[in-house]
Write a protein that binds this DNA or RNA. Structure first.
Lengths: 125, 125
DNA sequence: CCCTATGTTCAACGTTTATTGAACTATTGA
DNA sequence: TCAATAGTTCAATAAACGTTGAACATAGGG
């Protein structure tokens, strides 16, 4: 397991890749859950998303989200803690992330997103 | 040529499809150009985009943009006039389209988007 | 009525994508 | 030291995607 995986610099973040990343339902669910987590300022690790897909499939989606600049991965022991690259995204594409998140929230049921209480509860357990 | 092609209703517009549609550089360029055109409140037809791709390839992208609810196609003679579904998109996903357009504008050069004056000039010629 | 202009549709192609399970690596705790 | 935990990597598969050219449909102008 190599330490601290590759992340693009802020300037390297590209709009088409970000939008493509967000167009996948599983990745959208991950981003949405990370966005909810921002409020309690804690991170989530891979294991918190096992409801969404199998382990190896999740690793695939995490890699995409990292490589397109949507999230940051911090290695700690056997865990990888993840959070949104909020500052970089807001600097690069002002208002975009918020618009996407709130659009997703409006369609939470249709998109099969976890509700906020489920997310927080899952994070605490 | 069948009359008035299929458009989804406002409620049928889905976020993942919209984001996926916008993640393609050619479709982004089309949407961007249509957004510029809103300001002079005129429509554009297929022929206005021939700089972006071949005819049949454009038809493919137009179909995608129409089917995901991003644009409206109006048939008039041998022409198809197109415009953004601004009202429906703003109602469904408030702030999203504007954030995407202005994010694209910031990266206009990187995304190889036509500048505003080029767009307007092309529309007038 | 033909000819042209405007777009669509179709089949073909090569590429990329998401998903799976199995094998693997690294870390922690007993 | 051994076993369990957390996550990655790899190979394989099927589906979806973007691009192309040729054929087709439709409308308008001479």
């Amino acid at each position: 397991m190599s330490r601290t995986p590759l992340h693009p610099t802020r300037e390297q973040i590209e709009l088409p890749m970000v939008l493509d990343c967000l167009s996948d339902p599983i990745r959208m669910a991950i981003v949405y859950q990370l966005a909810q987590q921002e409020r309690v300022s804690s991170e989530l690790c891979c294991g918190d998303f096992t409801a969404l897909a199998g382990k190896s499939n999740l690793a695939y989606h995490f890699a995409k989200l990292r490589e397109c600049g949507l999230m940051l991965t911090r290695v700690a022991g056997t865990n990888r803690f993840m959070r949104l690259r909020r500052e970089d995204l807001d600097a690069r594409f002002p208002g975009l992330l918020d618009a996407v998140i709130s659009s997703a929230a409006k369609d939470a049921e249709r998109l099969q997103l976890m509700s906020e209480c489920e997310t927080v509860a899952a994070a605490r357990s």
